[in-house]
Write a protein that binds this DNA or RNA. Structure first.
Lengths: 198, 198, 198, 198
DNA sequence: TATGAATGAGCGTTCATTCAT
DNA sequence: CATGAATGAACGCTCATTCAT
């Protein structure tokens, strides 16, 4: 992506990576507008023109970070259809595993997540993308008879995404819960509901 | 809030209200930084110095809008504890009603909602506040035996907020669903879960 | 032209005129690129943002100056067709008068002339425009039998413009000749030629 | 000129020539300021530091191109005094030949001509130089009785230069006329004038 | 003979805010 | 209650030029 033929390990590539990392941190912490190119390069021990050696503009580096996040998330959600014919007890485990993987990715990449999931103008589109992948999965399982027929899986998928984004901010990034806990609590609730059945 | 002795209905008060309304629309549409004082006053048929007659700064008017949203939401969630001793079948109705009321408020105040729930630096605090109110309610009902004992109600409350924010953006503001539908789908899912019980 | 409703004589209009005048001088002296907004406003006793109160950009003020020159020149060349049926001896007087008027305009507006005739990207178009007006005139007189039939008047018109631009720079702006002299020398040569006829 | 001992045909000399040619094209097309060193070297398949191996600065290469033009033009106008004692009919042929040679040179070197005759800060001086050479010639012929005594040959020389520069831009570079046509039209007009003599 | 990497110096432009009236 | 006019303080970006290899 606009690598201009530089090789991995070259000093230029190092500067570029550094700028990306520092920019991610600053964008995540201060937002797009309060992040200044001057601060990014200062943190990298470089000067302003050098920034423009590697990125076309402030918008461009932000967009590149967004794209990195989007692609990583895409990789995580690909090939994730459940096998048909699972035993009922296994469904929870399966779903929980996938949800946990996403939470883990978020915790390991908090800056990218903040950018791609919350700050970018593409955030809505990215969430839509995630919701769509989830929706495909759930619909299959619904056809397989695991889930109630009356549920609208596109809405349920949005609900799932909403839960994940909120828990990520309020419990994951704060360190109050870890990915596995959150996955378990969330899936438990979604599968079996809150209400005691008499 | 900083009304400086102006009377309702006075011409100054009209300008002030106008500025608030126009600013809300612009902030909601373009975000804080892409909203320019120059544009707000132009839309209001006023000049820039006039703006500073009514508001201390750009931050101040934004904060005022945030506060309006927060207080309205606070009013909605006050006095909302469920009565103990409800019949099981009524719980769903009760909760659905409250959730529906919030969705209705969001739909009727989309600009304020965008600002207070999504754009403001206070947004997190406001969601925390809402989650807390919900948590109080749910905990009471849990103590009353309606909900499973193993559920951590603070986490559940965050989940509820997460669902509401996502559905608001993806289905309510887009016109795909109306408040009652959303309330029903969401509460149904939360109370009874997705999985068919054999 | 982007006057924003300011009235003549208002203080804002004064600032605007001042900026135009100073900018014209600087552009004429240093060219477009070596002219700095910072210098223009300093000369006007103003600050940089003020410049943008009156002009959209550096390009815009330059273009405005070009347009002023073009329109003035257009006014000079309008309604300038010679009357048919002039006595032969009068033709020289007539043409000389018109040429002299243009030289006078150039001498009185050296900065604008430098910009519109030499520095602007529109300069070629402006000269074309002038050449066209001249060509129309000469062609008429040719039809009236005053000028040799074999002359291509579009080429002759370009020749006339070339003479004027060069004499303007080398003799008019240097003070070596005055408009009337130049007009006389130029017209004399063009009408009767250099060569002694035996 | 600053050849630093490089031999013709050496690889360095090839790069240098290439840079000169490409720079000439870009300067002629885009002007001095809109021509970027980065673009020149990219077109030459080289890098920026290499440029400074051959030229001290952007100004330096531009000046070198100007000088090349000036010297070529100088060669053209040297030893060009007309012989005294020409037959009247031959004068036109002689002058036309010289003027045609200059037009031919301009057409064959359009980039250099644009630079040296129109873009360079030396352009005025170069035109002055050309005008002077022409003036010398004309004065001699005037003394020989070929031209009217009342003509000021320094002014006439400027007129000749003005005609040439305008026709070069408007008719030669556009392909509307060729050097011989232009020379003929121009000299015919200058020698015999426009007006029909009754 | 060449380049990968970097920078000094500067410029146009924007915008929230204020002063004087 | 309102405005015409102005500005302080930045910020993104560009480009010719150079250092080290």
């Amino acid at each position: 992506m606009s690598n201009r033929g530089r090789k991995k390990g070259s000093i230029g590539e190092k500067s570029r990576e550094q700028l990306l990392t520092i920019a991610a941190a600053q964008f995540a912490t201060n937002g797009f507008y309060e992040t200044k190119i001057s601060t990014i390069v200062k943190d990298a021990g470089l000067t302003q023109p050098t920034f423009y050696l590697y990125f076309k503009s402030k918008e461009a580096i932000f967009k590149e970070l967004t794209t990195i996040f989007k692609n990583s998330l895409l990789n995580l959600t690909e090939d994730s259809l459940l096998d048909s014919g699972l035993k009922e007890e296994m469904i929870k485990q399966e779903i929980q595993g996938k949800v946990g993987a996403i939470f883990r990715f978020f915790r390991e990449n908090p800056h990218l997540t903040k950018i791609g999931f919350f700050l970018s103008e593409e955030s809505e589109a990215i969430k839509k993308m995630l919701a769509h992948a989830i929706s495909m999965n759930l619909a299959q399982e619904q056809r397989d008879g695991y889930f109630h027929q009356h549920l609208k899986m596109d809405v349920v998928a949005e609900i799932v995404v909403g839960i994940m984004e909120r828990l990520t901010v309020s419990r994951l990034f704060t360190g109050l819960s870890d990915p596995e806990e959150l996955a378990e609590e969330m899936v438990e609730l979604l599968l079996f509901g809150m209400q005691v059945q008499h």
